[in-house]
Design a protein around this nucleic acid. Sequence first.
RNA 1: GGCCCUAUCGUCUAGGGGUUUAGGACGGGUGGUUCUCAGCCAUCAAGCAGGGGUUCGAAUCCCCUUGGGGCUACCA
Length: 499
Amino acid sequence: MRLRFAPSPTGYLHIGNARTALFNYLLARKHRGKFILRIEDTDVLRSKKEFEKGIIEDLHWLGIDWDEGPEKGGDFGPYRQSERLKIYDAFAKRLLKENKAYHCYCTKEELEQRNKELLARGESPRYDNRCRNISDSQKERYLKEGRKPVIRFKIPERIIEINDLIRGRVSFDTGLMGDFIIIKSDGTPAFNFAVVVDDILMEITTVIRGEDHLSNTPRHIMLFEALKAKIPEFAHMAMTLGPDGSRLSKRHGATSVREHRKIGILPEALFNYLALLGWGTKESQELFTKEELVKEFSLERCKEGAAIFDSAKLTWMNGLYIRKKEPEELVELILPYLKEKNLMHLRGEPVGVRFIKPETTGVINVAPTIDKNYLTKIIVLERERIKKLSEVPDLIEYFLTEEIKFNVKALEILKKPGVKEILTSLRQELTKLIPFSQENLEKIIRDWTKRNNLKTKDVFHPLRVAITGRTIGPGLFELMEVLGKERVIKRLKFIVNSS
RNA sequence: GGCCCUAUCGUCUAGGGGUUUAGGACGGGUGGUUCUCAGCCAUCAAGCAGGGGUUCGAAUCCCCUUGGGGCUACCA
């Protein structure tokens, strides 16, 4: 079994394409077949090397690997269509010779004009095959005019039936189609031709692709037949839609794998989530490891209807995977985000984290160095609140800056009558405390609260706000222990002394 | 316009003629745990697009309508 994923490097890896790649990958691995990456870069204008690189990186990041491909090599290469131009040319010549294709001299403008007229008359816009039997003199005249011909495939009129692995029998009447272009006037192959030639030569046995290619499949089948090649099996998977049910596009937010990676979605989460889009098990299982998916996946269980990409569910799943990670690993994953927000400063090995003032620009105001140990402790406290890695800097900022910011709600709480007195008294109590441990803190603060006939709520909350600047966060005592005596006292002092 | 695909809670889905008062998950509501948030636990609301058939019986099979998507490009 040989499967392939054939992206066009005209942009970064789209979520929908990533899902196509994933399904191909899963099936290939399940059946211990070969998975091939082929770059369809015949659109010279839009294709960019940078995107090819990006797609390869993103696939790897997602956890998808392949057996043959442009960087990897293989016995069926080259795997970049731009490097196979001679091959397409030879196949086109063969069709020409066998009278299964012909040169067409119509210009883009002429075609456009004719289609417009057809449409105006209420007829179907399509090529009228007029160059099929063009005379030699006419041909010469066109050539003299400087027209560059395209090569069109001569469509045999008949009914073509596809036995799609996902949607069953689908039939098309080729009599309704016009002869289509296989070689463009610049000599490069049209998509419909290049795919077929490549799938033949790369001995692809199963083609899994998006439903947008279903209507192209009869054209492909005609070409396979004309070239006397074995026709592969086809499976057309339903499209991935945006929240409003239209095609997933930029206006729906993050649509590329890269963007998701950037906002801190874990590859395992995206992998798992994507698999669930248009596929599911009898048990409606939600969480799968890669190995489980390879084992469980099947085309028979793919849904025919399109699926809407739900980022809320992805986010939920991401939180789940984050909570499953070891704190040490999470710290490593978070480092780039902290760096980006200027919340840490990397220096040599091992990586050290230093305090800096949040609004520092230019010269970094060096503060006490803290290490990954400290970060790990922080992450342990905050882990269950993390949904995306990009949220972490904001979540843990008050652990990493000397001066903390107070939000509006926090300020309101600090302004309440009696709060300052409570904090003043509490500060004295805490100054004496050794060791500054969670257990110790809880005991002494609870005792103090009881002794003063106060409700825990009226003590704990202001205390939290005073030392973190915010009303939400991890458990108060564990938070205080991690923050450390020095910082806690300093922050309390700041509040108490301010008017 | 023509052709093709498609349709179960807001979303992802289970269901493939009777076992279904249509199950699970996300999201939402409520309650509990708790200084807060998150998490966890409990709980609630929410759906077979509409209309015809077939059948003793239909979410499940067929047809039509409607909605959505795709192809109809010298894009892929």
